[in-house]
Design a protein around this nucleic acid. Structure first.
Lengths: 222, 222
DNA sequence: GTCGCAGAGATTGTATGCAATCTTGCCCAC
DNA sequence: GTGGGCAAGATTGCATACAATCTCTGCGAC
């Protein structure tokens, strides 16, 4: 009986998760071929499980698959990244609107303390930690909105964006602007103003997309 | 060589498609258990293919799967249908905005002729045909927008909505209102007014969601 | 009569093997 | 030297077999 309790919630860490992790951390590079038998050997499972995992990851958009020619890590282009951000923009806008309408006082308190912590870390110049809290704020808003459909789609979009995750916050001036935008979102939610919350979220993500577009030409393509 | 040409584009009609069709046409009822070996026998393929197809359909949201307990046709609840419509609302709003910004004169012509045909069929009281054109108009707008990410997500959402597809247009008064809303969307696109097109699309889909909410309590649950 | 439990049957999870297809490298004609 | 074609190797597609797990039925204790 104790084993049961111990295992509760401890997701069995499935093959799919291990593969996903290898992709999002870049251990498997974009466009790299994913040979089933190699993966099977290196993960210590059979090809069957690898195939099942690849099917799922394909649907998630992390892998692309051609019949009889195998799977490879999907390269998300810069223009596609912009599309994804545009999509996130309207989906998270919807979630922010609902969050504003439904937030309890406790919810608002949570958001404000996340914001305060972001401010603190920003002053300490720990931009990567700020970026983490950033993600946490967005996640919390989604929870408050209670909109599962939007949450599911956003999660899928996010996993395709890993390559661009830590970029924009590092750009000069982005950190200040990003903080102000988040503060505006939280303020809108605190006053239960749905329209304002949606507009603020869309402004915020548009400005991330702009930053990405501006940064894009500066880097050499890989 | 002729065989190659003949087969081009003739999708091999995969197991997945046959299963999806059985679900969306209702031949497989919501909550019905999907026993792999039964399906394999009735479709004349092995369990391996059935399993792969079920994994994909699960990701599409048509099937739900519990470990060691098998798959069943997923029942989309009324409240979830509303969530899906809300999500479609913002995604198609985005697409409508882009369509307005990018539409050529030919595109606008297409939209207007679809609208005219809708009007004609409406006067002939062929509401199901109107509903088909309805879908066609939405599809065309997505094409014009050129936004593949939004298109992909909307397609997935639509396949979950089949159970509710032909309902709302049949409600008294819906047909007139729906036509007016579509006309407004097309007018906005014709004048390349992105804001107006997005607002019109969101109004339209909100009103569909309202109709669904209003209709919902009238029917007995199955 | 109800509850608990054990075992058989049903069903899913995983591994393995063979067939189909693709890719690569080599040889030969030109 | 170049290009076409063919054969061998690599890889994926699919089916089958076995193991793990679940479900359901029936029996016995209370």
């Amino acid at each position: 009986m104790n084993e049961m309790v111990d295992n509760l919630g401890v997701a069995p860490l499935r093959t799919e998760d291990r593969l996903r992790e290898a992709i999002v951390t870049g251990r498997l590079q974009p466009n790299e071929r994913l040979v089933e038998s190699d993966l099977a050997r290196s993960l210590g499972v059979s090809r069957t499980l690898i195939r099942a995992a690849l099917v799922r990851l394909e649907h998630e958009g992390l892998v692309e698959h051609e019949r009889h020619r195998g799977a490879r890590v999907r390269l998300v282009s810069e223009s596609e990244a912009v599309e994804i951000l545009e999509t996130r923009s309207v989906l998270e806008g919807l979630a922010a609107r609902l969050a504003a309408e439904r937030a309890t006082d406790d919810d608002v308190g949570d958001l404000k303390s996340i914001l305060a912590e972001m401010q603190r870390l920003r002053e300490a110049d720990d931009l990567l930690a700020v970026s983490d809290l950033n993600a946490q704020l967005h996640r919390r808003l989604l929870e408050i909105s209670g909109h599962e459909t939007a949450a599911r789609l956003i999660a899928a979009l996010n996993s395709q964006m890993v390559r661009f995750q830590y970029r924009t916050i590092l750009l000069p001036g982005r950190s200040e602007r990003s903080f102000a935008e988040h503060a505006e979102i939280v303020a809108a939610v605190a006053t239960h103003d749905g329209d304002r919350a949606e507009a603020a979220m869309r402004t915020h993500l548009s400005s991330v997309a702009d930053a990405l577009r501006r940064e894009a030409p500066l880097r050499s393509q890989q």
